[in-house]
Computed example of a mutant assay.
Amino acid sequence: MAEKILTMKLLKEKYGVCRLDKTELIPKWAQSCQFFSITRTSDELSIVCSEDNIPSDIKCEKDWRALKVEGPLDFSLVGILASISTILAQKGISIFVISTYDTDYILVKNKDIDNAISSLSDEKYEIIY
Rank of each mutant, 00 (worst) to 15 (best):
L88S: 04
L120C: 07
Q90D: 13
D114P: 00
F35S: 02
W64K: 01
R65Q: 05
S76H: 11
C33M: 03
K4V: 01
L107V: 04
L25R: 14
T41N: 04
D114G: 03
F36V: 01
E24M: 13
K22C: 12
S76T: 14
C60A: 15
R19K: 15
E51R: 07
Y15I: 03
K14M: 07
L11C: 07
R19M: 12
I80S: 01
L107S: 00
I5N: 10
L77K: 02
N115L: 12
L77R: 00
L6A: 12
K62M: 02
I98N: 12
G71T: 04
G16P: 03
S56I: 08
L88E: 05
S99V: 03
I58T: 12
M1F: 01
S56R: 14
L20F: 10
L10Y: 03
S50K: 10
L25P: 10
P27F: 02
S37F: 07
E24Y: 10
S42Y: 05
V17P: 04
E123D: 08
S76M: 11
S119V: 01
L6S: 09
K4F: 08
L10W: 06
I54N: 13
I84F: 05
L45Q: 14
K109G: 03
Q34M: 09
G79M: 08
S76K: 14
E13W: 04
D114T: 12
W29M: 04
S42Q: 10
S94W: 02
S118H: 11
A66T: 00
A2N: 13
K68Q: 13
D122A: 06
D74S: 15
I38Y: 09
E70L: 09
S85M: 13
M1H: 09
L10S: 08
A2V: 13
I26Q: 09
F36P: 07
P72N: 06
K124Q: 13
M8I: 08
Y125L: 05
I38G: 12
K62S: 06
Y129T: 07
L20K: 07
I117M: 15
I113D: 02
D114W: 00
T100M: 10
I84A: 11
L25I: 04
N110S: 14
Y101L: 15
Y101R: 05
T86Y: 05
Q31C: 03
D102F: 09
L73E: 09
D63F: 10
F96T: 02
E123P: 00
G92N: 11
F96V: 02
R19T: 11
F35K: 02
T86K: 14
S32F: 01
I26T: 11
S46Q: 08
I26C: 06
E126M: 12
K22M: 07
K91A: 11
D52E: 13
I26G: 09
L88Q: 11
D102R: 10
A2S: 08
